[in-house]
Every structure is written in C-alpha cells, then in structure tokens.
Design a binder for these strands. Structure first.
Lengths: 342, 342
DNA sequence: GTTGACCAGACATACGTATGTCAATTACCG
DNA sequence: CGGTAATTGACATACGTATGTCTGGTCAAC
C-alpha cells in the first residue's frame, strides 16, 4: 500500500540499487535484459520517482528568466507584480527568477538582449515579445543550449517553443464579438475598434475573431476599420471624435489591447459618448477603475497571476521531463464585469 | 546567495542544531534568550524551511476526506472527477483522499456520516453540505480533534471552518443580474427565476444578488418569484408553461443552480421559448452542450478543477501551519459563453 | 552538598534519491 | 582457454530536516 522506493524496485527486479539507478537515469552500461527487468518491476509496483527527494539529493535549482517588453505598459506591470508575488512562494521550491526588460518594438534590441543571456546559468526562459525572424533565430540558439522556452501572452508559433502560456486571441476576439452582439441584440449600428498597433499578432487575431462572430451571428452590427494610435493620446481623442461625428449610429467601442488608458481618456472627455457600450482587454489598474466607474461594460482578460504561475509550473515540468497537467494550465478567457471583479 | 539551512541558523545564532529545532518546531525547554537569538537569525538570513525536505524526514502523509452530496448532481460529478484528476498531479503528492457521499437533504444522515469519520486517520476535511445546527456541532467535534475543515462550494459561516473554498454567491447573482440587464438593455419585460430548492443558501444568496442589481440598475426589468421544482422534471415543465402564458412579456430565464437539466429540457420542449435569454449556473456536461447548441446564452460558473486544487492546497497549508497564497486561491466567478468555453 | 528540574549541545539515524568509488562478476572475442 | 571489456553490486556520502538519546551544565530549593 505504501509508495514503492528504488529499494523495492531493486529487490523486485533482483538487481542492485546501482543498476536501478542506471536504468532510471538512462545511464549506459546496463544489459538490456536487466534493464527490462527493472522496467517491469517499475510497472508492476507502480513506482513513481519522488521528485522532491530527487531534487533534494541533486541540489536541484530551477533558474528561470522572464523576458518582457519595457516601457509603460499596464499589462506588463501586472505581470511583473505577479512574478514578484510568486517569488516568495517559490523560494521554498528552489526556484529563482530574473526579469529582463527589452524594447520590444526594436527587433535588434530584443535579439541583442536574448543573445546576452547567460545560458549556462539558466534552465528556462519565458518570453513575451513579437515574433520576428531574428527572434526565431535567437530562440533556436537558446534552445540548442538545452534551455526550455515558453512563449508568454503572445504565441511564437514558428520558433519551436516548448509551450505557449496565454489565451487564444482569436477566441478572445470572438468572445468580445459575442458580448457586443448580445448587448446590442435588436439594435443596428456600428462598432468602433481601436488598438495601439496592429503589428502585434494579438490584435490581428482578436480582430479576426470579432469580425467572424459579428458578421456570422450579428449581421445587423457593422464594424468600422481598426483605428491604430501608436501611443498617441491626442490622436485617439481626435480620431474618436471624428468617428463619432461621421457615424451617428455608433453603438460601441472595442479596445483590443494596450492603449486602453488613452481610449478611456478620450471617451471621458468627449461629450455624448457616455451611453456607448465599451469593452476592453486586460484587467489592469486603469481598466479596473473604469469598470468600477461604469465607463467600461466588460473586460476580456486573462488571469495574469495564473498565467505567470502556469509558465513557472510548465518550465519546471519541462526541466523534470514530467507531464504537464493540461487542465490546470489552460489560461481562460475571462469576462469581467463590475459584479464579478476580483 | 544560497538558501540558508538550519545549520546556518545554528551557526549565526551561536546555538546548537537541537536548539534551533526546538525553537522552529515550538518544542519546550528553550530559554527565551536563546529562542530570541534563533528567531533573529532566521529573520536576518531569511530562512524558509524546506517543506519538501521536512516532509521527507517526517514521512509526512496528508490524509483528507471530501464530504459531498450524493445523488444525481452534475456539479458534484465534476467535483469528483476533479478530485481524481488531482490525484495524479503535483498538488496531491503525499496526499490521499477519501470521498464520502452523504444524503445532504437529510441533516441526520449528514451528521451520522460526519460522526462516523475516523478522526485518528485524518488530517483535513472538505465539506459540501448545507449548514444546520447539527452540522455545526459535528464540525465542532471534528475540529476539536485537531482536524482542519474547509467549506466547499457553499459556505458554513457559523461553523468555525478554517476556510471557505468557493465563490461569493451574492456576487454571482449580481453578475447574472448585470448580464441579463445588459442583454436586455432598452427592453422591458420580466425574468423567470428557477432553482431546485431555495433551502440551499447558494440559491438564496444568488437571488438576493440578482434582485439588488436588477432593481437598482435595471428597473425596467421585473423578476418573477422564484420557482422551486424539487427534482421534479414534470413540475418545471408545467410551471414554465404556465409562467409563459401568464407573462407574455417574459424575456429571460435564470436557472440558479442544480436542476439545469430539467429546466433546459422544459425550455426545449415548450414552443415559443427559443428566443428567451437563458442563463444558468455551473459548467457541467449538460450546460456545456446547451451552450454549444445556443440554448443557453451564458453560464455563471466556478472553475471546479481550481476549486478542488485550492481546497487541497489550503488544507495542506493549514496542516503545515503555512501561509495561504490568497491571490492563487481566490475562486473566480466566471462568465462563460460559447466563444470562451474551455 | 545533594537532588531534581530545566536547558543545551553532541551525535546518530532516518526519509528517498543521486552519485561516486571500487571490486567482483559476467560476457564476449579470438 | 585466457584476456579484456562490459556489466554489476556493495558501500559510502550527501541533500535539508526531524527526532531521538545521552551527556553535561546551571540554578534553585531542600
């Protein structure tokens, strides 16, 4: 009934502890016949290695780095906060972190930073930058050093990452579309879509998802072309004003990502916009307050704390060669309103 | 830079390992002066006990029991599945579970089962039953044996539990109300509220939350009295039909908890109800399918996998006398539509 | 000055695994 | 058959913590 140990395996297989160890850890110099007996014993007794004891013996340390975009970004700030929050819980688990800020807008700077990582002192990296050919190469280099890589928030589908921790942005866009459609059922009108930049793949995917749902299920609603405002508060205010004037049937605004603050600011200072439906992405200090103030009707978010913890767990599992507990790691697309705000 | 161990503490404090141990584990026979020196050293070096090593040395086993309502209940079934799933995961190492099914509708049966627990072979219990005076007493008895108790799904606020793992049902009701209000903005009409039973405090709290939001923010919507149908599919079908006929302005149905299947069945077989807004609680096989089929517009749910893992982590933390990682343990009120279904 | 209570320290052993050394056995080749 | 290489076993030590035993010291009360 008790958990079998390597000793039990050795006894059952009729070999020595050393041989069991050699088999279990894939070392050389074991006769196939004995290896098979050991494996049979493992199966028969249902042995599972005690990772904690193993880590203790090995003096295992998990050394991870987070590579995040620098600059003022509310989402990144909440991610950093989540990392720091996880730190104290993880020291006890022999895990340590490094946070690296890179100028995500400059591919060369990103690559320089990635290449400057001291690979010999790292076991895994979580990366949140847009995918470019240079980034792909840098990741290939990191991986060739035997370091595990997970993409964070925004997927790097062509870079051979070991995992993607984040939401499916296409579905997130669809969710926004469905919400808008249901909020505006029985109404016709148009929807303004804004974002900071459409080069980030998140925004592109969200826009696709939005359009698919709206055109498919809510054809009475029309989406206007995406307005990009590149960190320029003045521009969004101006553009928003213009859009309102030229679209008297405007019913809703959908902010697809970074730049929520500027959008909210514009909404607030323009008159006659207060009865627009407004949906934004990401739960940050700014959007939270807007939700409480009734300026936003709903937020589409991913749970950043969960995201960070998940990335850490996945990196550890990869290092241990262990399975990933999918159900636990799935990052959900959350719909947050004032009433279920946490 | 490396993690300090008890040896470092002993050296720093100028005492022996034994004394450090006596202080750390709250044993007697330590002069206050020395105890203080040890504590100072702990603070200075930032020592945190390596729980894994400690558990190894102690041969620690965590023995937990789940007390769940018996009978056909989709939510409970998903909880049981989540417990079994957790068994294979990291959260559950050195942990063994017992699942106890009780007839939650019969307070005496519940208490008999609680009293029949072998307290000497238990470290913690997670309980999901309605609170009655008898249950309160039984829990007091369990706690007096030094066993930790967490309330699951439905709070037991007067029973001195160590923790409540679940959502705030008042807020869940408010969330449903807000969703209904926004789905039906610019419309007047009435909303049908159904549940299996209003004795469960969940339903009562949800109803309060619903009413508060609707009457406060959406006064154009009227809620009808709650219909209870006590596991009687025939009854709900009949009552629903009657409600529809006598309320021609019916716009939505809100199912507050168990009994979703019967409600959906009734919705399906009655004619002319297909354009009602329908919101239900709990993501189960039944509600999931209804969401996919478009019969439900949204589901208010708690992540059952998270709920179970959280209860386990909290029980373990209590047993270890460790802190609870609040941000991780908060169970969120999820809004699930077809597009963000997982 | 002896007794006993209290307090401290030294030391050993254990948990399950990893990893090393070294000698002993076995298999294979010619 | 001998010789060599491949394989194996026995044993020791370690990781950080828990826990026991045994010895020795201090201090107050008798």
């Amino acid at each position: 009934m008790v958990k079998p140990t390597v000793h039990d395996i050795a006894r059952e297989a009729g070999v020595s502890l050393s041989t069991v160890d050699r088999v279990l850890n894939g070392r050389a110099d074991v006769r196939p016949k004995n290896a098979e007996r050991v494996k049979a014993a493992v199966r028969k007794l249902g042995y599972v290695r005690d990772t904690n004891a193993a880590n203790l013996a090995k003096q295992r340390r998990y050394r991870f780095a987070f590579v995040l975009p620098e600059g003022p970004n509310h989402l990144v700030e909440t991610i950093v906060a989540a990392i720091h929050e996880a730190t104290w819980a993880q020291v006890a688990d022999r895990t340590e972190f490094r946070i690296l800020s890179v100028n995500a807008a400059d591919p060369h700077a990103v690559v320089d930073n990635l290449n400057a990582l001291d690979l010999s002192s790292l076991d895994g990296v979580a990366i949140m930058v847009p995918e470019t050919p240079q980034v792909r190469d840098a990741i290939a280099h990191i991986k060739s050093a035997g370091i595990y890589v997970v993409a964070l928030v925004s997927d790097l589908p062509n870079s051979g990452c070991d995992y993607f921790a984040g939401i499916d942005n296409f579905s997130a866009g669809k969710t926004a579309g469905a919400l808008l459609g249901k909020f505006l059922r029985n109404e016709t009108g148009s929807i303004l879509v804004v974002t900071n930049s459409m080069v980030a793949r998140d925004s592109i995917e969200r826009r696709f998802g939005l359009d698919e749902v709206l055109s498919g299920e809510f054809p009475h609603l029309k989406t206007l072309p995406t307005i990009e405002f590149h960190d320029d508060a003045e521009r969004i205010r101006e553009t928003l004003g213009h859009a309102v004037r030229s679209n008297p049937d405007l019913k809703a605004v959908y902010s697809m990502g970074s730049g929520n603050a500027a959008m909210l600011d514009a909404l607030r200072t323009q008159s006659g916009l207060s009865d627009l439906i407004a949906i934004a992405h990401d739960l940050t200090a700014v959007t939270r307050q807007a939700l409480l103030d009734g300026e936003l009707d709903a937020i589409i978010a991913q749970n950043v704390g969960h995201l960070v913890r998940s990335a850490i767990r996945v990196l550890r599992a990869k290092c241990d060669g262990a399975d990933i507990y999918e159900a636990q790691e799935r990052i959900r697309i959350e719909i947050i309103m004032r009433e279920n705000l946490y």
